[in-house]
Nucleic acid binder design. Structure first.
Lengths: 118, 118
DNA sequence: CCGTTAGTTGAATAATTGTTCAACTGTTTT
DNA sequence: AAAACAGTTGAACAATTATTCAACTAACGG
């Protein structure tokens, strides 16, 4: 009958590799979340904002001046960073100060900097 | 004359923060490269491929089977990973085996996994 | 209370990008 | 030599997304 296929399924070393890899890989949801996290990091404006916040909390206007961009553009990106729980905001009078919500980000970026500098 | 402006420039704590942050931030090119690296990581297919390769080198067909995607789609993404020097390829007969080109990737992903698992 | 400053938001536009499809290059097998 | 298999590639399409613009809210100062 389908002898050839059966033999392949049992003997084929490729199938074994696939099986092994499948077991070791993080679950689908985790992998999706990782991609989503990196997607947030994968924009120059957002990496600029985040690395700026490594040094000090800043209000929106300061970030605008630092990066030479409009308040609207920065605010939109801060919203993305807020929704991803990467930054937090606190209001002081008319100004809103943003800061990092998490230390992991710093470590991930340190690794990335190490990588791009070879 | 422009007293008000001068006083602001000297006294304004915002200006000082911006100055300090500017000094501490990585140079523009490095920041761009970091964003580019994260952009490559920011796609589910590519994160799936990379985490699969953490465990073992694999040929294109195996990756296709593992992820349930076409050869073309996988090949296109492997090209992106190759161009970013994240994976390397070696030909064995008709098959092309891919493997990680770098250990940094593993460390960056470990940090990311830690982060998404809170 | 009115004007100003700081920041947010929704819609629109423009650019980027992931997958599919079809045609292609190599390599092995018969 | 031809068929079959593994993989690559370019064009096309669809979907996502970053910035701009304009209108808005919130807080402060006179």
């Amino acid at each position: 009958m389908t002898n050839k296929v059966e033999i392949c399924e049992v003997e084929n070393p490729h199938e074994k590799v696939i099986e092994k890899v499948k077991e070791m890989m993080p679950d689908e949801e985790t992998l999706y979340d990782i991609a989503e996290l990196f997607k947030v990091f994968g924009d120059s404006t957002r990496t600029n904002i985040l690395t700026a916040l490594f040094e000090s909390e800043m209000c929106v206007c300061d970030i605008c001046e630092l990066l030479g961009m409009t308040k609207s553009a920065i605010s939109h990106q801060l919203r993305v960073l807020r929704q991803s729980k990467l930054v937090k905001a606190r209001r002081v009078g008319k100004e809103v100060f943003y800061s990092l919500a998490d230390d992991h980000v710093v470590k991930i970026f340190e690794m990335a900097i190490e990588h791009v500098l070879e």
